[in-house]
């Protein structure tokens, strides 16, 4: 716990700096009144993932769309992420994401177009993604990518090329993108291919300056927090489901921190299970 506390403090500082910089960048474009903005906090079970779920990068096209379309944004969700949080009492991924983003900025209108096709590899998803951009003209693409490629042991270079090329294509077409990375499963922690894909996605996000929601770190923290509890058993299946349900919150937070990067709440310690 002490260790995750340190990460929290560091994460908070880093995020504050990033957010302050982004505020200056994004705020002048946003039409949403500053007083109404609030970065959503996590629900109890998702809190351990608070510290390291996202890297912040600007979302210039969403910011511009907010101004141009009077507070309305269209989000295209590609990949299995669109199924996440189904069983959650908060009404599923789409509803959750919408509600959290709306809560983050009053008057914000969020349209989410879900076009998840399961099982498809990054290369096929990339093709379909472009078609959907042509059909739905989104301001932001939420792309969960990598898991199927990892499970199918697709060469890392192939995955990296497909994702990077698509991220660049989206930028050229004035569409922002948020990548949702791999998730943490202890069985895959020592799988070099899985880790290579995870690293490749982070590298793309960093080099192309786009947001990546780091599900892996979030889940790793959830599990670490549990292991730190004396006498607690780690149920990986339950954790996986929890983290799955938390995805909407992580994504919503990543977006709202970037867009309205104010009102960051200090991460609270995880409650005992």
């Amino acid at each position: 716990m002490a260790r995750s506390g340190k990460i929290s403090a560091f994460g908070r500082l880093a995020r504050f700096v990033a957010a302050a910089a982004l505020c200056a960048l994004v705020a002048p474009h946003a039409v949403v009144p500053a007083a109404a903005q609030q970065v959503p906090s996590f629900s109890r079970e998702c809190q351990p993932g608070n510290t390291a779920t996202a890297t912040e990068s600007p979302l210039p096209n969403v910011a511009a769309a907010l101004q141009r379309k009077k507070g309305k944004i269209t989000i295209l969700a590609i990949g299995a992420a669109s199924t996440a949080g189904m069983g959650n009492v908060r009404g599923g991924y789409q509803a959750q994401l919408q509600r959290m983003l709306k809560a983050a900025a009053k008057g914000l209108e969020v349209e989410i177009v879900n076009r998840g096709v399961s099982g498809e590899l990054a290369e096929q998803a990339a093709q379909r993604l472009k078609i959907q951009v042509g059909l739905t003209a989104p301001d932001l693409v939420l792309w969960q990518v990598g898991t199927n490629d990892a499970l199918s042991y697709i060469e890392v270079e192939r995955v990296e090329t497909a994702v990077r090329e698509t991220v660049r294509w989206l930028k050229e077409h004035k569409v922002d993108v948020v990548l949702v990375g791999l998730q943490y499963v202890s069985g895959m922690a020592r799988d070099s291919h899985y880790q290579a894909i995870r690293v490749a996605l982070r590298r793309i996000a960093q080099e192309e300056n786009v947001i990546i929601v780091r599900r892996y770190e979030a889940m790793e923290l959830i599990e670490k927090a549990q292991r730190a509890e004396p006498g607690s058993a780690v149920d990986e299946f339950a954790n996986s489901e929890t983290a799955y349900n938390c995805m909407a919150q992580y994504v919503a937070r990543a977006i709202s921190v970037t867009l309205f990067g104010r009102g960051l709440r200090p991460p609270q310690p995880a409650p005992p299970q």
Binding site: A80, G119, F237
Partner: peptide, 9 residues
């Protein structure tokens, strides 16, 4: 490996 439960929708 709970990851397999999320495979293929």
């Amino acid at each position: 490996n709970p990851l397999l439960l999320e495979w293929h929708n």
